[in-house]
Write a protein that binds this DNA or RNA. Structure first.
Lengths: 170, 170
DNA sequence: AGGACCATGTAAAGAGTTACATGATTAT
DNA sequence: ATAATCATGTAACTCTTTACATGGTCCT
């Protein structure tokens, strides 16, 4: 149930509407915990019902601004410190590598080369995020940079692996 | 729909029953594409209905052995070479890092230290898999080693990141 | 007036998890 | 005998995705 905590986390910085959250998910959480608009509105409803958030204001166009409650903040902290992260690794990219014997060595190498290219693009994209984050000093940016560094480091490792793997075929 | 292709991939090596596949998923695919027993039997039914696999033999205790069809093999190859891998990264571990400002610096550092420890355990586990794979020369083992190398390299990057990140707090 | 954007919601389908349910065969 | 393992299946629930549906407000 991490979507719930992603929403609580964003609301712990400042109150926001479903629409605002949607934008925040797109900008800052898309690489960590993507969510759709549809999911967001549903979750906000459940969160309000559970008393973890409140409708703090209403605006034009039926806008409802939600604020985290004390209970919600407590739940967020409990989740951060007490709940063990679940390790679910599902990678259809890697699944293909596992079965690469089913295609020709040329196709296999092309596949790995293509993966390397995709990772390069992703790294460029992350460098863009780095630029966006530079100079900003709020909580989310500080920890956003730490999270970003994770993406950068793992991306580089992935790139080196893809290049190495290509050399391993035949 | 990658579960489908994971099953096709395993069946491309040799025919197997749902029970056999279950064991194979546990041993070799648990770090790449985990699946439950329940999912497997459902998928085999759908795969048979779609003509991608056949019941090739029946044994004691209602055992049904499935074999991949030509159509199934074609679909597997198409999926490997033509379908773009989907990049879905969801990490509740990283999500917590993003919101680490909500707990004390001590708690935050403890969290990162704990993550480092978990990665170390995971790396040890992967070294065990490496031992298991050593000397084996079948298709799945060869590509299994390439897949394993991925886990090892990314695990190491993750470990270094966690240690670096701990130093970044305050 | 019209386009861009703000804003919320519902429905249906697909995937994955957990638990339940049942029974046969093999080895000690 | 009985425990371990082989073997298959269903049900209920949660999460995620995609599509549909609707309308208000702001800016030029």
């Amino acid at each position: 149930m991490s979507l719930r905590h992603a929403v609580l986390g964003l609301l712990s910085e400042e109150p926001a509407s479903g629409y605002d959250l949607m934008k925040m998910f797109e900008i800052s959480l898309s690489n960590v915990w993507p969510a759709t608009q549809s999911q967001l509105y549903g979750e906000l409803g459940k969160l309000a019902e559970a008393g973890l958030v409140d409708v703090s204001a209403e605006g034009p166009r039926g806008r409802k601004e939600y604020a985290i409650t004390e209970e919600g903040l407590a739940e967020l902290r409990r989740w951060i410190t007490e709940v063990e992260p679940t390790r679910v690794t599902r990678s259809d990219m890697l699944l293909r590598v596992f079965f690469l014997a089913q295609v020709s060595p040329d196709q296999a190498r092309a596949y790995l080369r293509h993966q390397a290219e995709l990772v390069r693009e992703r790294l460029e994209n992350l460098e863009g995020v780095r630029g966006f984050l530079r100079e900003r000093e709020d909580n989310l940016s500080v920890h956003g940079r730490i999270t970003l560094e994770y993406g950068l480091r793992l991306g580089k490792a992935q790139l080196e692996w893809a290049e190495w793997a290509e050399g391993q075929i035949r």
